[in-house]
Design a protein around this nucleic acid. Sequence first.
RNA 1: GUGGGUAUAGUCAAGAGGUUAAGACGGCGGGUUGUGGCUCCGCUAUGCGUGGGUUCGAAUCCCACUAUCCACCCCA
Length: 415
Amino acid sequence: MLTHAPKGTKDVMPDQAYKWQYIEKKFAEICAGYGFQEIRTPVFEHTELFQRGVGETTDIVQKEMYTFKDLGNRSITLRPEGTSPVVRAYCEHKVYAEPQPTKLYYNIPCFRYEKPQSGRLRAFHQYGVETFGTMNMMADAEIIAIGYDFINEMGITDVELQINSVGCPKCRPVHRDALKAFLKPKYNEFCTTCQDRFNTNPMRILDCKSPIDQELVKDAPMMLDYLCDECKEAFEDLKKNLDSLGIEYVINPKIVRGLDYYTKTAFEFITNKIGAQGTVCGGGRYDGLVEEIGGPSTPGVGWGMGKERILMTMEACGVEIPQPAGIDAFIAFIGDEAQAAALKLMSNLRRDGKSVQMDVMGRNIKNQFKLADRLGAKKTIVIGDNELAENKFAVKDMITSEQVEVPMEEIKNVI
RNA sequence: GUGGGUAUAGUCAAGAGGUUAAGACGGCGGGUUGUGGCUCCGCUAUGCGUGGGUUCGAAUCCCACUAUCCACCCCA
């Protein structure tokens, strides 16, 4: 137990960490190009933030939160998602008083108490972007575009962008009533999970994997047919903007978002290469959320993207992430006097910004070379009695195997 | 929460009741005393997830537990 990470968590070891560094760097670069600025919020928040933000009825709030009382008897929750905390910070720091829109990105760990499976962890990591302050569908298109560009930049080729509109508080209830009226006569024919869904989230029934249920809902009323004029126009604008950007998409009228705060635009980037949890990036518009959290009525749009899932998809696509380069030089030494000289040389070279290593295991010269090879050393410097006596170093080029003697004071010119 | 699969060295992996648990990779060392990547040799699990049970005898059969993987649900 002591030597096991908790269920649903994973260590990112050095042989993987360089991949994380790679995508993190790329993501930050793309965000900079798009004018999104980084925001960092705490790992935990007041529980109520998520109850209000994500929604009391959602699975996340009802059964997946890491919630505990702190020593001051406050109810604290490890963040299960990134948007609510950003909205909280946006309100707290009165960012709405600054020129809009506000464009933010983040790179965070999130926590949800779920049963782990492929592409799903209890402690996972996600990128997110959010744009506040504009109803213009250019913002939605830009949000989608930044995800699209990042996914492409990562070399991922088989992801499909699906878009939908989930309507707004004006038109969604109309559709919901129509849908329930349509489904009610068939209630007993649905699978048991769909019977539950009938009460909690009837739109999900449209997406049920059971072929029987699929048949039952074939002619069900679709949200897209019930959009009010404003939502309909917004959806048309979104499609137009995506077309202008040359972003391919398919309309999937069954896309539902699991968090209560979404309005109008909903979208997912989906792959089938990493198992059942194929949503690599998902998001949408949330025009009521800022107000719900206690700020002034302010529209917003954004997405979250699972870093583990991105990495898995890259792997599945055979993307090769450049490995860290080898070291500039390895210093091999023979004897105590040489050790002192080697130590000093290594220190000097390191201060010059070179990556240099030497053996600390007492290996003989042969195995020091072996180590140098494994470390990917470009050059190996040899120091022994001969070199000490003649005031020079032997320097071997590990690629060409050529060895030359270099006066000690000139060593910096060849490394 | 429900269902299914799997658990043998650092890693991959043979083994399917019977003397000292294959092999490969990796690691460490060596091939005459100061030179790697190739090759050759040696070493590297008193123990087969944990706890019970069956048996003269179990890594191999049975039970429980735990871990892990996958799927449902849901989501990133």
